[in-house]
Structures are given as structure tokens and as C-alpha cells.
Write a protein that binds this DNA or RNA. Structure first.
Lengths: 174, 174
DNA sequence: AACAACTATTGACGTCAACAATTATTGCTT
DNA sequence: AAGCAATAATTGTTGACGTCAATAGTTGTT
């Protein structure tokens, strides 16, 4: 990959370039200069954009359930760990501690999780799934998978597997 | 205010997990249940999370430049299309029309882009890059690539290529 | 006993996405 | 040509979200 070669490509005859009538413009990506490559040429931007789309898809799926993606993430994490300190939820899920407060509040209001005092440290609260939280996860699991499958529709199973593995590699480093 | 905490917390020793909330789906609790797989088992969630990380990385990179990721996206789009209606920016970039207004406002304030009246339709404005916008893209291009490279550090070039191709396939369907 | 570090919590501030409503303009219909 | 639906840009509002600062209660250390 070219690192620092940007040798005075200037002299771009500043064409006025108006009135393109671009209602159905098929993106003329003939980049004679590197800085004018399209947005989709950047993997980071693709990730950003697909992340938004994925989050939206998940949220609309969860919309009927009363919880949102962030709550769902907490629930799923609790399903694997069976009890977690709020501080742990914060660091593992990447949310601010102050955000965890509200999330657990909401989950408690819906009887999907509950706080228990920690026997070791009275500062800490241990958040655990309730029975209703468990059945909620069980009932929504299938539909949740469908959301992802929908998102990855253009890929065949093998490609999805590859994508997942690559994303995992990228993600696994705090 | 820690007055009334957990009133009747008496018999809560082990949670024998009897479904007192009879759902219409009486599936029993098996050993390894699918609904308790980790969050990272879901590609959609991985995308969501990496998208957030990518967006943050881009924003911190752009922070010094005075613009943010959304502005940068507009600029990059303008670099390829050389003039676009705000409505076009809205649909192609996925932002709400009302968001485009503020973005173009900001870009105009910094003399990175400007609105021009459309000769065909007086309702429309054509947004074009200014000369300063072009040099801005040219100057920040290299650092922008570095952000993505940093994000994809765990992957070798071939894997990045694969990932990019897969993401492109997923993204390309409006 | 005093003090620094930590956990959960609250509050404030700015960003951001999703909608509804408004203004100016266009195109269609009659 | 006059009325009317559709459209482009804009304004405003609402709620979600991330970040940071500050606080109360608690722990461990000195």
C-alpha cells in the first residue's frame, strides 16, 4: 500500500461542474486521484455504515418487546455469565457505568433482570437474569437470528462464516 | 436514599427455575441452550459493535480538523460526484434530509463546500466542493487510511481484501 | 483514624437519528 | 389559468446515546 506518495498531483483543472442532473447517477468512480475514491472504498466506513444498519435492524426487531439493543446485549451477556457486576457489564459491553444504571433499571422494571447485593462487597450489585428474562431470551432468540440472517442475505453460509471469523479477529482486542 | 431495598427478599437461595409464567411455548430447559450463546456469536452484533468502534476512531481522527464523520462522508461523496442535490446526499448517504441541512451549513461555514442554485429546479440546491474542500480531502486522505489500517491491524492484507469484498456485498443493496 | 481507590449513581452537555410541520416551488389536472 | 398534489429544503421537536464531572457509600491501606 502506498504510504506517503502524494506527489503534487495538483493541477486539477478546476472544472465548474454544475448541472449534472444526477437523479440516477451511476457513480463515475474513475479516480484519477487517490483522495477521490468513493466512500465504499474504505472498509472502516463500510463497517460504520453496516453497524448502523445492523443496530437499526435489531432495534426495530426488539421494538415490540419493549427493550432495545443495549438491553438485549445486557441480557445476552447475563445469559452466559449468570450474574455480573455492573462494573463488569460496563467494561465488557463497552457502555459507560452511568449507562448501565439506566439499563438495569429498565430491565428490573420489566422483571427481566434484578440486582442482588454482593456478599463480598457492599458497593457492588450483582445483576442476574430473572426467570422471565430467561424465557424472554428463549422466545426471542429465533427472531434475533433471523435479523442477522436477513442482514447477511447476500452471502452464502460459507461466506457468512468467513465474515464472522474475520470480524471476530478484528473485534477481539480490547 | 437507600431506604426500602428489596422488601421481600427472603426465600431467594437458588432459583429452582420453575416457570411460573407459563408462556405459550413450554420448551424445557436443556443443557446447552441456543439462546445462551455469547454476544460475539452473532455477526449482526459484531457489526454493530465494530461499527461503533470504527465511527469513534474516525471521529477522533477528524476531531482536530473541525469536521466529523458525517461531514467527511458528505465531502467524500462530493469528491466522486462533483456536485449533488441535498436530496441525493440524503438518499445516498442514508441521512435524513434535515440532517443534510446542518451538515452542509457546517461545511459552508468552513468553506469546504458551497450551495449553488440549480438551474433546472429552484427548489433544489447543488452542493459542490470548494477548492479548499478538495485540498482538505487531499491532505486528510492519508491519515484517514491509517485509521482504517489501524482498525484492521489483526488482519493481513489478503484478509482485509476478503473482508472488504464481503462487506461490500452486504452493503450494496439500497 | 485518616486517606486513597473504587462502585454505583446522578446530573449536565453535546451529538445524533427519526418525525412532523412549514415554505417555496414544480408538475399535473381540469 | 387556477387548483392541487408532490417535491426540496428547512425548522423544530423528541428521544436515544456517549462522555464527562461530581457525589455517596464502601473498601483497603497506611
Amino acid at each position: 500500500m502506498r504510504a506517503t506518495d502524494r506527489p503534487a498531483a495538483g493541477a486539477r483543472t478546476r472544472e465548474p461542474a454544475i448541472a449534472r442532473q444526477p437523479t440516477e447517477n451511476p457513480s463515475p468512480i474513475d479516480a484519477d486521484e487517490p483522495w477521490m475514491r468513493g466512500l465504499h472504498a474504505d472498509t472502516g466506513y463500510l463497517l460504520y455504515r453496516l453497524g448502523l444498519r445492523s443496530g437499526q435492524a435489531f432495534n426495530t426487531f426488539l421494538q415490540e418487546s419493549g427493550v432495545r439493543l443495549r438491553h438485549y446485549a445486557v441480557l445476552r451477556y447475563l445469559a452466559t455469565s449468570e450474574g455480573a457486576l455492573q462494573r463488569e457489564l460496563s467494561t465488557r459491553l463497552g457502555y459507560d457505568p452511568s449507562a448501565i444504571v439506566g439499563l438495569v433499571d429498565d430491565l428490573e422494571k420489566q422483571d427481566l433482570a434484578e440486582r442482588r447485593p454482593s456478599p463480598d462487597d457492599r458497593r457492588s450489585r450483582i445483576v442476574v437474569l430473572t426467570e422471565r428474562g430467561r424465557t424472554f431470551l428463549r422466545d426471542t432468540d429465533e427472531a434475533g437470528l433471523r435479523v442477522t440472517n436477513d442482514l447477511l442475505a447476500p452471502l452464502d453460509p460459507a461466506e457468512r462464516e468467513t465474515l464472522h471469523a474475520l470480524l471476530l479477529r478484528v473485534a477481539d482486542r480490547p
